[in-house]
Computed example of a mutant assay.
Amino acid sequence: MRIGIVCPYSWDVPGGVQFHIRDLADHLIRLGHEVSVLAPADDDTPLPPYVVSAGRAVPVPYNGSVARLNFGFLSAARVRRWLHEGTFDVIHIHEPASPSLGLLACWAAQGPIVATFHTSNPRSRAMIAAYPILQPALEKISARIAVSEYARRTLVEHLGGDAVVIPNGVDVDFFARAKPESHWQGDTLGFIGRIDEPRKGLPVLMKALPKILAERPQTRLLVAGRGDEEEAVASLPEELRSRVEFLGMVSDEDKARFLRSVDVYVAPNTGGESFGIILVEAMSAGAPVLASDLDAFAQVLDQGAAGELFANEDADALATAAVRLLADPARRAELRERGSAHVRRFDWSTVGADILGVYETVTEGAASVAADERIGLRARLGLARD
């Protein structure tokens, strides 16, 4: 099958949607399918051979974050050229309602279109206001996927229609077989995310840290991600700042080793999450997970059975739970076991098969419609067989 995938966000700025698209493309290619991904990217960004650049993106505030998007006449021309040259059996567009390549591709594409909706935003006035503009493009979509029940709810409430829920996928074995790094072991809390994006929750974790260190002064917080490190620790008393170690951006391999090493992975995100891919990666690596009780996080963690939850934005609750987990190796071992078993449902062997099933359904439907149209045309021309 020839599959064209449209990524709305800049390839050179890591994020959950980009990782999902990358891993989906890799999975499909391993199965023997021909895949091309169209994505925004800066000129000097190293790209996998299957990624086609649609040009540089610009930062735009979107869903409580800053997304790097690509839109305009030049982008539209590149989308049309990519579609023409690709002759795809199916087009898979991610976030077709965002002002980026997905919407442009929806307008321009012909044939079967599958769309995945990642956004969870229960009060999006912008999405409601844009609906009359989006409607003609969205009506061309053959099948809709939502990465969680909360992304599906956002779609239903703002844009109408419905979607099948297929979660983001993870190569579980890649994380499970990573080797721990001794320097990152021993009374360590881990955090991965953009440091200067408040909704990722690092300020909440920093607020909780003094209480954690008062109970367990040997604890270290390891932080991986880009952002202003000095600003991140500015709220901490100066004598505690040495207990925070910044690792900067880490490779996929180092991320897996990081998650295999820490005693507790903390996800203090405050909102705007439709899934929580980092939780799945952490469970895959065997890290006990402590996360804010966002609806999407609770669903990924099996309502607290596969990881512990604390009240969102409550630094004291976070600190209490973290101290308890650090002091209880038996509980951490239990969470590792439960998380490792629960996470198998998110492996690409399952998720990829579900997505391929959607592709096959829409392509078979399109082929059936085309056959009916050919029969109708022959009849109108008097060429139908007796």
Rank of each mutant, 00 (worst) to 15 (best):
G102V: 01
P99A: 15
P122S: 13
Y131N: 15
P136L: 11
I91H: 02
I93D: 01
P96Y: 03
I113D: 00
Q135L: 14
R125G: 11
P136W: 10
S98Q: 15
I93L: 10
G111H: 10
V114P: 11
Q135D: 12
H94M: 07
G102I: 00
I93K: 02
V114G: 08
R125Q: 08
L103V: 04
A126H: 08
S124N: 13
Q110V: 03
S98A: 15
Q135I: 06
A130Y: 05
H118V: 03
A108R: 08
A115H: 09
P136G: 09
L134D: 01
S120E: 11
F117I: 05
N121H: 05
L134T: 01
S100C: 07
W107Y: 12
L134V: 06
I91L: 15
A97F: 11
S124V: 07
A105I: 00
A105F: 03
A126I: 12
G102W: 05
L138Y: 05
A105N: 04
E95S: 15
S100G: 13
V90S: 04
T119N: 13
F117W: 04
A130V: 01
V90G: 02
H92I: 06
M127R: 11
G111I: 08
P112S: 12
L138R: 02
M127K: 08
L103A: 09
T119A: 13
M127H: 07
T116Q: 11
P122Q: 13
G102D: 00
M127Q: 12
P112Y: 07
A115G: 13
A105K: 01
R125V: 03
G102Q: 04
G102N: 06
R125K: 06
L103E: 03
V114E: 04
F117K: 01
D89H: 08
A108M: 10
S100N: 04
L138G: 02
V90Q: 05
L104G: 06
L138I: 01
I133K: 12
S124I: 07
I128W: 14
V114F: 10
V90A: 09
I91E: 03
R123N: 14
W107Q: 10
A130H: 05
N121M: 07
Q135R: 15
T116M: 09
A137H: 00
Q110F: 03
M127N: 03
T116N: 11
L138E: 03
L101C: 02
P136I: 04
S100I: 02
S98I: 08
G111S: 12
S120H: 14
I128P: 06
A108P: 07
P132G: 12
N121K: 00
P136M: 11
A129F: 13
T116K: 09
M127P: 02
L101K: 02
F117P: 00
H92Y: 11
F117S: 00
I128V: 14
Q110Y: 01
P99Q: 15
H92D: 14
H118Q: 06
F117H: 04
A126E: 13
Y131G: 13
A97G: 14
L103W: 06
P132N: 13
A137C: 15
L103K: 00
I128A: 15
P112M: 10
